[in-house]
Design a binder for these strands. Structure first.
Length: 466
RNA sequence: GGCCCGGUCGUCUAGUGGACUAGGACGCAGCCCUUUCAAGGCUGAUAUCGCGGGUUCGAAUCCCGCCCGGGCUACCA
């Protein structure tokens, strides 16, 4: 990608604090950070909080939390400051006002006194006549008298708007199709298509990397930049959207997977989620699928980014997460498991870890595998000969040192004496101790439990020996 | 409706005119291993490359039309 040496790379994400931290925000942040790191650039976080209705300060914290969890840390932002502070749009109102006044005095924008109802009528009229809607320019040509509430509209100059998209190549839009759009709302707040380009320009953003939903917004923003006399960002990149499993657009109500924090709760590793997100929309052209962040920085390029939206797939995420879990050292895994196993102490978790490792798609899966350690299982109904083997096992285990190796050896004598397959002995023990047919290997399953507890559960099933 | 962006196994994708009898991964099935479940190893099934026309000796790849999906078209971002 052509990145000029003269201007250092500056990128940004601009989430809106209108709800939980968004999966898409994480994805966009990832690509921005990768690009910044690859070019020794700066990554800024700007909070686009110009929607007074939907905006909540606590949601800003939620965004920070989600991004921090993923390790997607920013160099400049509302909480960190930076050379272009403030980084909250609600604190930059005077900046937008200045720029709006400049546009107004230069005749590149005008006040619009139309009411919402009037505009609505205009739009419906156009619809009824089946012609594409564009604002009538009534307030430019013949403004109504005696009104005080107004918006500021940008006077679209017309002509072709061209720009380079690092993913899609040369883009061209006919601005003749775009009506004069509102740049300052009647409440004095700027609209997105005004605040965003003004901030990008004043914050000296060099590359705008964002979701594909903004592709059509780009000509609006470019016209604003141009008429303000600012230099344009050197390039844009519009990343493919993450679609729901059924191919539809994700919605907050129907798709909980949109919520970033859900992944932490379910026990996905942040680095695995990042890996999955990177792969959803990009591939290196090789068969590699597992990447560290540093490898992504090294390998990523926009010309290998997908052009179409990709569906979110839990199965693939689970697989990647499992790969990361299996690659973890025991003590690292144990540490990450701890929050998901509040009933157990550190030492127990660490002892369980080797047996857990190949059995987890996500950290929260550990609970179902170990809950027999803090829950008394219902004793299973066993065949008489199985009960005999449990008795034999109790006898063999009586004086054994309580660790997997010794337990295994003792149990094998019972297996051999039975003349049957190992499972004929192990399964009844497993059921007696855990109440389930599935558990880690029996020696681990037993060793994790205090010996007295294990023996007591066996005794419950075995009844009194005589 | 208008303008934009897309359309290869169920899913993510490789593929840029001949090496494609369309490759990989997830998932799925079977086998091996085995102490249940996993993990691991091996094998396998699943794609008339959205549809229809061209261009060409030859098209998933180029052109046109259509269909389908998505985005924008807001005093949301």
């Amino acid at each position: 990608m052509a990145v000029s040496d003269s201007s250092p790379v500056r990128v940004r994400i601009a989430p809106s604090p209108t709800g939980f931290a968004h999966l898409g925000t994480a994805s966009t942040a990832l690509y921005n950070l990768i690009f910044a790191r690859a070019h020794g650039g700066t990554f800024a976080l700007r909070v686009d909080d110009t929607d007074v209705e939907r905006n909540r300060p606590e949601y800003e914290q939620v965004i920070y939390e989600g991004l921090h969890w993923l390790g997607l840390d920013w160099d400049e932002g509302p909480d960190k400051g930076g050379p272009h502070a403030p980084y909250r749009q609600s604190e930059r109102l005077d900046v937008y006002k200045q720029h709006a006044v400049k546009l107004l005095t230069e005749g590149k924008a005008y006040k619009c006194f139309c009411t919402a109802d009037e505009l609505d009528a205009e739009r419906k009229q156009a619809q009824a006549e089946k012609r594409p809607y564009k604002y009538s320019r009534r307030c430019l040509n013949n403004p109504p008298e005696g009104r005080s509430e107004f918006t500021v509209r940008f006077k679209v100059p017309g002509g072709e708007v061209k720009f380079t998209d690092m993913i899609r190549g040369e883009m061209s839009f006919d601005s003749g199709l775009i009506g004069d759009f509102i740049v300052v709302k009647s409440d004095g707040f700027p609209t997105y298509n005004f605040a965003s380009p003004v901030d990008d320009a004043t914050m000296e953003i060099t590359h705008v990397i964002r979701g594909e939903e903004h592709l059509s917004n780009t000509p609006y923003q470019l016209m604003v930049v141009d008429s303000l006399g600012y230099a344009r960002p050197s390039a844009y990149a519009h990343m493919p959207l993450i679609l729901a499993n059924d191919g539809s657009k994700m919605s907050k109500r129907k798709h909980p997977e949109l919520n970033l924090m859900l992944y932490r709760e379910k026990g996905y590793l942040p680095e695995a989620l990042l890996n999955y997100l990177a792969l959803l929309g990009w591939n290196p052209g090789t068969q590699q699928e597992i990447f560290s962040f540093d490898q992504l920085v090294e390998l990523f390029s926009f010309d290998r980014v997908q052009h179409g939206g990709a569906r979110f797939d839990w199965e693939k995420l689970n697989w990647i997460n499992g790969e990361y879990i299996r690659a973890l050292d025991d003590d690292q895994l144990a540490r990450r498991l701890a929050p998901f196993l509040p009933q157990l102490d550190e030492a127990t978790i660490l002892r369980a870890t080797p047996a857990l490792k190949t059995r987890l798609a996500k950290l929260s899966d550990a609970e179902a595998l170990l809950d027999y350690l803090w829950t008394d299982p219902a004793p299973p109904a066993l065949e008489a000969d199985a009960v005999d083997r449990v008795r034999a096992a109790m006898a063999a285990l009586q004086d054994v040192q309580w660790e997997p190796g010794a337990i295994h050896d003792a149990l094998m004598t019972v297996v051999e004496a039975s003349g049957l397959g190992p499972n004929k002995t192990f399964m009844p023990i497993r059921q007696a101790v855990t109440g389930k047919k599935i558990s880690p290997p029996i020696d681990y399953t037993l060793a994790l439990l205090p010996k007295e507890v294990a023996m007591a559960r066996l005794a419950t099933v075995a009844g009194s020996p005589d």
